[in-house]
Simulated scan of single mutants.
Amino acid sequence: MELNIQDIMKRLPHRYPMLLVDRVIEMIPGKSIVAIKNVSINEPFFNGHFPHFPVMPGVLIVEALAQSAALFSFIDDGNLGKIDINTAYYLVGIDETRFRRPVVPGDQLRLEVDAERLSRSICKYKARALVDSKIVAETKLMCAIRKLDN
């Protein structure tokens, strides 16, 4: 199963400059996802991180992995409905995170996320980001699902 940017925007509430997933190239609902983030010199964070040697902040690589996880966690039997605006998906834990090499303009991040545990309230994942088949970051993520009080 693949998703283009329009499909992604139907399923994630994030928008520029915080939408960090450009395309999904492989997805097994409730199990795993492979997504792509194209890193451009036009990203707003490169102005200050760093002007003399632009590097994508590690926290944004982790955020891209968390957004990828959100894309496949709530899809059952291929039902690709829109996001529930009364539900929030929060990143609540980051463990065993390592950054192996810098990500720079022109790189294409391959975001690979596998579900370790999915429930109605807490989800756990093992994730890694690669550039040119080399691991640039890896982490374990924990996310909470909460109904919003209106």
Score class of each variant (00 low, 15 high):
Gln108Ser: 15
Lys82Trp: 00
Pro44Leu: 03
Ser73Thr: 14
Tyr89Thr: 15
Gln108Tyr: 07
Met56Lys: 00
Val24Cys: 01
Arg101Thr: 15
His52Met: 07
Gly30Cys: 14
Lys134Thr: 14
Cys143His: 07
Leu148Tyr: 06
Thr97Gln: 14
Gly58Ile: 14
Arg98Gly: 11
Ser32Glu: 15
His14Gln: 15
Val24Lys: 00
Arg110Ser: 13
Ile94Lys: 05
Asp77Arg: 07
Leu91Ser: 02
Ala66Arg: 05
Lys134Glu: 13
Asp95Ser: 12
Lys134Asn: 13
Pro17Phe: 05
Leu3Ser: 03
Asn4Leu: 10
Glu26Ser: 11
Asp76Leu: 12
Tyr16Lys: 08
Ala137Arg: 09
Gly93Arg: 04
Ile36Val: 15
His14Leu: 13
Val131Glu: 05
Asp132Lys: 03
Arg120Ala: 13
Thr97Cys: 15
Val59Gln: 00
Arg98Phe: 02
Thr139Phe: 04
Asp114Ala: 06
Asn42Pro: 06
Lys134Gln: 14
Phe74Trp: 02
Leu118Phe: 12
Asn79Ile: 12
Asp149Ile: 09
Ser119Phe: 01
Gly48Asn: 12
Met9Asp: 10
Ser68Asp: 12
Asp84Arg: 08
Ile36Tyr: 10
Arg11Thr: 14
His49Cys: 12
His52Val: 07
Phe99Trp: 05
Asn150Val: 11
Pro44Met: 02
Val103Ile: 07
Arg128Asp: 01
Leu12Lys: 09
Gly106Glu: 09
Ser133Arg: 12
Asp95Glu: 14
